[in-house]
Design a protein around this nucleic acid. Structure first.
Lengths: 199, 199
DNA sequence: CTAACACTTGTTAGTGACTAACACTGACGA
DNA sequence: TCGTCAGTGTTAGTCACTAACAAGTGTTAG
């Protein structure tokens, strides 16, 4: 996510790229929600966004990638590092996730729900999400390790993986109930099941 | 996996099918290990097994599916149901996984390692495995619920998901260390990180 | 034993995700 | 203002996967 600082980020090129990226993503999500994920071809998305299908793949490595939210993980990792070192790891993750969630939900709850629903519902996207979960986990494990000043070991990796699993389970339940529940309550319950102290 | 009982399972057809299925799987794994997963095409696997690529897809829904081990999950679920109802859920899962693992490892440790290595190493297979993890989880959650005589709730689902995550983390570590460690010890450590009592 | 049937397979033709190569165009630095 | 090069479109391909039909072989009723 680092931007080449030697070139001003506000140049016409950068701006254009950002706009194209946003356009592709927005049109893709709209088309997915309208006509279904499988039924929507990359060609259609590209056409809707006014680019060729090659350009699509230059911005997103796969069709699935366009649904991902890449900003969320680093945000949580950051939060983890900010937690006091004395806090038990699972509790630290819980609170970090809560913080991140509050931020994201406050911004655009409906968009988050729509996207989550898409991912949870569709097998291919779900699989993709889990693949990314591996990245999330090592990111979180490293954050935990840095916070505690210890090396990354099996214990921390398991805790990070379990926390990710808890979060995903909460998200799945959220969607299964049609978004009726309060997601934050579900997350709290999920972490409670892993023995994280609520406070 | 249920066989139509109205027809004897020992007919020529059934036998032939079983042989074809085994042939495809074995040739596929050999080719994957030899030349890499991506580099091996379904066409090549089919040719090696002496069938057309259509036949391949009639036996396995996707290229990835040929690597999966479908017998393992039900085996664990069975083990879970056999655990005493008084045992805490995470402990029950731990012991069930241990039991299943002992069985599988005793049979063909090297084959298990080779297959696990393939899956852990390759992103697409890894993703697929985790997609199945969703199935595994609901299977385990249901087993836990039946054992305790309670409905499946968020808590049980989270515990099942966390256990699966712990298992996968242990498997990943196993492969990362080149299979040098004792897998059962790793699994014990992984579950210990989730607070499962060792005994 | 044989003929009709059911099942399995191969062939062919297609779709759609994704890639490589190359030519073009326009923004940027000098 | 001009050369450079990042960003894009076009074209032509590979490969996973599917649908439709034709052909072969095990099974079974008569």
């Amino acid at each position: 996510m680092s931007v080449d600082e030697s070139r001003p980020a506000g140049g016409l090129r950068e701006e254009r790229k950002a706009r194209t990226r946003r356009a592709i993503r927005e049109h893709a999500l709209r088309l997915f929600l309208d006509g279904g994920y499988d039924e929507t071809t990359v060609e259609q998305i590209a056409a809707a966004a006014g680019v060729s299908h090659m350009t699509f793949f230059r911005y997103f490595p796969t069709k699935e990638a366009v649904v991902e939210d890449d900003d969320y993980d680093p945000l949580i990792a950051e939060s983890v590092r900010a937690r006091p070192a004395a806090e038990p790891p699972m509790t630290a993750l819980h609170r970090a996730v809560r913080t991140g969630l509050d931020t994201v939900l406050a911004a655009d709850r409906d968009a988050v729900y729509a996207r989550t629903r898409l991912v949870v519902t569709h097998p291919a996207l779900r699989a993709r999400q889990w693949r990314n979960a591996a990245t999330t986990e090592s990111l979180l494990a490293r954050a935990l390790a840095e916070r505690a000043g210890t090396p990354v070991d099996l214990r921390l990796r398991v805790i990070a993986a379990a926390a990710t699993a808890a979060l995903i389970t909460a998200l799945t339940t959220w969607v299964d109930h049609g978004g009726a529940d309060d997601l934050r309550t579900l997350v709290d319950e999920a972490f409670a099941a892993l023995g994280a102290k609520p406070r």
